[in-house]
Computed example of a mutant assay.
Amino acid sequence: MIPAWVADMDLPTAPAVTEALLRRAAGDLGYPTWLVDPNAGPLAEAFAERMTARYDWRPDTAHVRPFSDLNQAVQAILQVWTKPGDGVAVHAPLYHPFLDTLRIMERPLRPIQMEPDGATWRFELPDLSDCRVLLLVNPHNPTGRVFTRAELTALAESAERHDLLVIADEIHADLVYEPHRHIPFATILPERTVTLTSATKAFNLGGIRCSVAHLGHPGLRAAMDAQPPFVYGSPSVFGVEATVAAWRHGDDWLAETVALLDRHRHTLARRLPAAFGYRVPEATYLAWLEVGRPGMAEVIEREARVRLNDGAPFGPGGEHCVRLNFATTEAILDEILNRLTHIG
């Protein structure tokens, strides 16, 4: 069985990260100097440096708060800012743990439906008047779309009109392919936006459990700061060390990795059987494939011995799709494609 489903890379860790963790493990594992800093000190500084250098955005480090991962951050923000029954607008299909969060927390999903449009995807903005939050996933998971400035501006205007908090999940921003460009939503609507990100996707560090929230919205910032100081936990020294090392010293590794992923996304376009509808993603290492009917992930697993994500848990628009992770070696991707050839 080849696992090509979970959003992790099948690639070695960046040497800069490994070296930083080994240095920390061989040295002081006591309380860090930043333990009582609400923004985890060096984590906020490295985040701000990276946003400035890569995206020409200068976030205020005083507005940064650490979390274990983006799911925890989304749940904490919804818990503090909304109540059961408040609508949450999200582009659909959507990252399925977010869909589970909305269901469990009783925040009704208001889908902004992604529709096929030639070689890419488009969306039409519905009425968001019954929403409290726009949960914006950009770059988008699972379609791999990178929203344009015009699209983001339209979303910002709707958020202003309906008085929405915007939670911007930008975790895939470092995995955008040329000629596309990631635009932080906080550069368009700073005082309504919470920006969530992490080094875990681009640098394959899911196990370190460390992410960043930049709380641009003053009301939400006050509400979060009114919570007990450790109610959402705090990052470990290893999580902070790995993240800072990745963001400050890992870009050579990242450039090589993105080049590999770029080749892989085009390999899929050349070699996927006709039974799979495929639009080349503009970002991420995830291929959203149309397969014509429900339940095909189970068929593919049984007949081709390749495990993919079934599209149904991704919500509206996912029923006839599967998601394939192509962040692997050329040899393994070749074997995956050879096995999929037999699926009709």
Rank of each mutant, 00 (worst) to 15 (best):
D10K: 13
L11A: 13
L11W: 14
P12E: 04
T13F: 12
P15I: 05
A16Q: 09
T18G: 11
E19S: 11
E19P: 09
A20H: 05
L21M: 07
R23F: 15
A26R: 14
G27S: 14
D28V: 14
L29R: 08
G30E: 11
T33E: 07
L35K: 02
L35G: 00
L35W: 00
V36L: 04
D37F: 04
D37N: 01
A40D: 01
A40H: 00
A40Q: 06
E45F: 07
E45A: 15
F47L: 01
F47S: 02
A48M: 10
E49T: 06
E49L: 14
E49N: 09
Y55E: 05
D56Q: 11
W57I: 02
W57A: 09
W57R: 04
R58G: 08
P59A: 03
D60I: 00
D60H: 12
D60Y: 08
A62C: 05
A62G: 13
H63T: 14
H63E: 08
V64Q: 01
V64G: 02
P66S: 11
P66H: 07
S68M: 14
S68G: 15
S68N: 07
Q72E: 00
Q75W: 01
A76T: 01
A76I: 00
L78R: 01
Q79E: 07
Q79G: 11
V80Q: 07
T82H: 05
K83S: 07
K83D: 00
P84N: 03
P84R: 02
